[in-house]
Nucleic acid binder design. Structure first.
Lengths: 204, 204
DNA sequence: GCCATCTTGGACCGATCGGTCAAAGATGTG
DNA sequence: CACATCTTTGACCGATCGGTCCAAGATGGC
């Protein structure tokens, strides 16, 4: 049966994305991807070309989907980066708590497996982390009382904490545990933006 | 050739551990484990029983090896938990910076892949994270000006940051980036131990 | 020196991997 | 209705997976 495409490409990408998200690139077999999307190998290869290309599409889709939500969270608190970061973490925590979604985070998952991926894929993941860094940094710079170095470090810190939430949630950490991590992280951001660190006087 | 065992079990475990560490459980093939250890399948199965059992032995060995170093780091600063945590992160950073070792951390790696492991293995990994939590908590409690709740949250925070270092390093983050994360984390610990957080007054 | 015992390397097993391909059916154009 | 074009299904490919097994060789007790 055919003639014209029988399925919605974006819906298929959503399902494939979840398989990569849940099992990682290597453990996401074409059989698993096929049954999750309801597609045969012919359709998968005819549409996407290869497992690698499908993975890239899924990465892009994931980044676009949740990247937009992160943007919204920051944008909801213009001029107030601390509230922005809180809202950002809230989005992450709600995604993690959603039982209809795999645990963790596709980017973190892929970053952890980066050395076992194609060099190309590894660089792509690194690029996505950089995008996240720039996004956070831009939000933090919104009330630029801090120097550019501090801004970079804080953004790296927020990205790092975000990755840690993914790892811990995959290990089975509770929402409560995760929230204590974000609470402390937010306090750190607030302190660092309010004034230089005590004990280690900032050169800025 | 044989009669008596021809190889050192611990040395073989060291090599196998690195393979799991570098590639993760699923991607660590028996061929890779065999060539890394220099052992044939007969020796591997005769000594360890199965890939899963070998993995467990490697987890234990990893936890024992680096757990001891963490203990040392904390023990080197009795009564000074902040310095203890700094020393702890220093051990982690040096291990990550060591080019003769795989990137990241075997525990973090396994935690991220936890949902794809045996239920048994997943629980084991969770147990190792708990052990790390208890270790950090005990060190923090050394100068117990903080309540037990705060202690738990801080220990979770330190464990979380440790996991984030593993993920970021595997994605190719530089030592400098990693150090800004630990610097901010240490400042957070110092602040929380010195007094309750501002803005969010602690109930303790 | 004989022999039970153990270890070792490698052949081998069925299952599964990512990927290809051809046959068959559906479609739009003329 | 005929036909070129496209999609889909599922059989099939070689490679590799984790795991088993056995023949050959080394060992120590007697």
């Amino acid at each position: 049966m055919s003639g014209r495409k029988q399925f919605d490409v974006d819906a298929a990408l959503d399902q494939a994305m979840r398989v990569f998200w849940q099992r990682g690139y290597a453990d996401a077999s074409l059989d698993a991807l096929g049954s999750a999307t309801g597609l045969g190998r012919g359709s998968l290869y005819g549409t996407f070309g290869s497992k690698d290309a499908l993975f890239h599409r899924c990465l892009e889709r994931y980044a676009a989907l949740y990247g937009a939500r992160y943007e919204d969270a920051f944008a909801a608190h213009p001029g107030d980066p601390v509230r922005g970061v809180e809202a950002f973490f809230e989005v992450v925590l709600e995604r993690i708590a959603d039982p209809s979604l795999p645990a963790g985070c596709l980017i973190a998952q892929s970053a952890a497996q980066s050395p076992t991926l194609t060099r190309e894929s590894g660089e792509r993941v690194r690029g996505l982390l950089d995008r996240q860094h720039r996004r956070v940094r831009a939000a933090l710079a919104d009330s630029s009382s801090a120097g550019p170095g501090t801004l970079d470090e804080l953004a790296t810190f927020v990205v790092a904490v975000n990755q840690s939430l993914a790892v811990l949630s995959r290990a089975g950490a509770s929402d409560t545990e995760l929230r204590s991590v974000t609470r402390l992280a937010c306090a750190t951001v607030a302190r660092s933006l309010a004034g230089p660190a005590p004990g280690h006087p900032s050169p800025a």
